[in-house]
Design a protein around this nucleic acid. Sequence first.
RNA 1: CGGGGCGUAGCGCAGCCUGGUAAGCGCACCUGCCUUGGGAGCAGGGGGUCGGAGGUUCAAAUCCUCUCGCCCCGACCA
Length: 581
Amino acid sequence: MRYSQAFIHTLFEVPKEAETPSHIFLLRGSYINPVAAGVYSVLPLGHRVTSKIRAIIREELNRIGGLELTMPVLNPAELWKRSKRYFDISEELIRFKDRRDREFVLAMTHEEVVSDIARQFLRSYRDLPVMLYQIQTKIRDEARPRAGMLRVREFFMKDAYSFHRDFEDLDAYYPRIFNAYVRIFARCGLASVPIEADSGIMGGTGSHEFMLESPHGEDQFVICPGCGYKANTEKAVGLKPGAGAAVDSPPAMEKVGTPGVKTIADLTRFFGVPESSFLKTVACVADGELVLAVVRGDFNLSATKLANHLKAVHLEFAPEEVLAKRRLHAGFLSPVGIKDIRTVVDTGVSESATFVAGANEPDMHCKNVLPGRDFTWADKTDITEVRQGDQCAACGKEKLEIRRGIELGHTFKLGTKYTSSESMDVSYLDNSGEQHRVVMGCYGIGVERLMASVVERWHDESGIQFPISVAPYEIVISALGKKPEITEAAERIYASIDKKYEVLLDDRDESPGVKLKDADLLGIPIRVVVSQKLLKNGEVEIKIRQTGEVRILSEAELYPALDALVKELQPSLEGLPYMPE
RNA sequence: CGGGGCGUAGCGCAGCCUGGUAAGCGCACCUGCCUUGGGAGCAGGGGGUCGGAGGUUCAAAUCCUCUCGCCCCGACCA
């Protein structure tokens, strides 16, 4: 392809809306163009990249027997009402009516449609297992799109769904998907970190997020440098060292006046004891039911863990009106004296220590509160956010580290959430004619996010450094100068490698500086320079974008060198964190 | 949805406080000459309802009101 024909319109200056490297360079390189908040056109150059990513995904999913199909974005609301997601999801799902006043939604994933297909076609154990996938537009009215293509409202997602006769078969199949994911990201030049993920209200039979560690990631995960334990912070558990005032014969509970002292920070100043000596009580409304969550003062409540424990779809902090109705007072909340409200206590709250807790009346706290003696609870479980430096619960040795990352993909054992009779009702007959629920898994990868993630990982101050596997072109020929012999040499080289590789010939009437800067910005992995200076000695130059390595070669040496380089630069599939199959 | 910032040519910006002489600059784009190893030079040129609506005024990019859009932080995130 000739540069002059390639629809490349690089920008010298940084558009002011862009702050993260992938956003800046994808805009400057004319890979993408904004249309609305979180909505982008993928321009020809970007399209070449996403096409390669899609091809890699297809190869790896076909390799494990996946079958590609296409499902519609336009879905009748009826399907989504049947699965209940129509009611469980709020604003993120776009809803509207057609001209005949029928309700529709724009699909944000395709569990409903694919389950409906499964219900109709998968009737026998002989039809299972099967994995169906598509690479299709997803629409999500995100509250806040951000960081260019890292979080958008319309994008291509590879979504795959597998169907199994039972959980054992799903468990047996799961590593194949897991390993395909590891390979897909590796082939795109990314070292993905598979972490244990929150599996939501399903309860955890298994879910992984594949993270790219990155300072611009929106998600956090913990990693144990000792045993290698890795998990989403929404799921991760750390050890909670004993705290509170451990005593053999605890003194009786006692009320203390604490006018205006509401926060844990205020309390530590007032009582002069550490944060861990207090109980923090948080009032939440879980699917309409008021619940008190009690954690130690030095921890934060994890709303996700609490919601999962309660199997609640919607969890929010209790509004003032709800508290007032129960004669509860924000800042002085406490499990003490509460009988008719479900109380969930965190495992960090020791029963052999006393704490300072609220008194459930304004401007009063209780000290010497002994859990079990002075209040009781319905459940005791881990409901706190893990902290940087907490001891790893898996090995008990090292301290957990919190890292930021971009979620590249998610694999999820769904079980029977969508196949149950209350949902999409998908069943089959086994070899004895008995009816069973189909067991399901679902697996997603965001295509444009993957492109942006590659740029987050592979760039320097001059621009992108695409891995050759996903680069828009493998080789750029920069012809510096307009002298006929330069043009002839460049054209000759172009003609001899254009059939074999994806080559961009910079045929523009531009100064050397412009051509070299653009080649760097665009991130083409191999640059071949043809110039007067080199040509005098019958030479050309190769420069490798990622390493900066430069080689001066004769034109005859160029061709075998390119053959070797193109192979050499392919991302390695060695030493990946495979799951045993 | 809360907090903050910004809307003037494709991109980056000045002008606004103090209304008129304020439609400007750099890059990009077009024409010609010249130049060719890191965003050259000279000359000429095209392009803007100053986000939108209403108001104040003899007069509004500039002052007032409303509104729309975009970005960042947070909440949220099947």
